[in-house]
Nucleic acid binder design. Structure first.
Lengths: 159, 159
DNA sequence: TATTGTTATACTCTATAACTATA
DNA sequence: TATAGTTATAGAGTATAACAATA
């Protein structure tokens, strides 16, 4: 496959070293996130959902009557970005906005029947893929990883 | 702070539930990655480096003579995107491209003296911030998390 | 034919500022 | 005056296709 290279002034190997970067939590987190995110995106594509749309649809279904700001806060994203996600979900009739009669600034968000149907299929597919992605770990290790990630998130956010 | 709300047809709590999503490795990975990435970006800003530029500069310094394609492969990004990162680093005279005399398709990448100086400071700051972000974990837990992340990445990439 | 680097482009995700209508 | 939702826009990050030079 690879033939011997004519040697040049600088010694080179076929595979580069990233041993220094591998000491960084940020580096390892990003690499793991990338492969997991890409795989999840591929699976959700058949439902015409991105990972963000899937997450928002899931939260709306689990919290009917939630507001846009609440969702944005929970997902650590800007309200202005949440508007676009909800625009998309509402255009496709997966989520419905309706004015909150008690506070006319707010919209109460609810899933449509079709939204619930799509979510059901997407959740099953996403969950199966999630398990497949973590197949290198046994149940105990998986639970441990989840707990460590949560502690990192909470410890890092607490400034 | 929060006054009692007039009750509406749908019961609502101030904090939404994401218990279903919290079962997903992808969800937890993304949340942890977001807070870590934002903090790292903030720290690297004083060196006018993004996390990607920092990573590439670090790899060039650790592997003088590496090629663009090798770096792209290692970082799991497209060659076309690596071109733009290197354009930026070279414009700022942190990295230098020079033709490989043995294969005139390639460029050998090397850090400049200024590149090494900037990298030294950036690495120290990034490492300190990385440790701060992981301060919720002791050394043993940190090592365990790193190992679990690596196994997820490798297991997930192996299709 | 295949590979390296490149250009152009589009799409996704994130961030900021300013506006409106309500409170 | 503060908050909820919105608009517009800019900046990262990522992906795809096509091309020239070289192997």
């Amino acid at each position: 496959m690879s033939r011997p290279m004519a040697s040049s002034e600088v010694a080179r190997t076929d595979s580069l070293s990233d041993t220094q970067l591998r000491e960084f939590l940020g580096y390892r987190l990003k690499r793991a996130y990338m492969v997991v995110h890409r795989a999840a995106s591929n699976v959700l594509q058949q439902f015409e959902l991105g990972t963000r749309s899937f997450t928002v649809l899931s939260l709306v279904a689990a919290n009917p009557g939630a507001s846009l700001s609440q969702l944005a806060d929970l997902l650590l994203i800007e309200r202005s970005n949440m508007v676009l996600i909800l625009d998309d979900l509402e255009t496709r009739e997966l989520v419905k906005r309706s004015r909150d009669p008690n506070d006319r600034r707010r919209y109460l968000l609810k899933p449509t029947l079709q939204g619930l149907r799509v979510l059901e299929g997407a959740t099953a597919a996403a969950f199966e893929e999630d398990k497949r992605l973590a197949r290198a770990l046994n149940d105990e290790e998986f639970a441990l990883l989840m707990s460590l990630l949560r502690r990192v998130e909470e410890g890092a956010s607490a400034d």
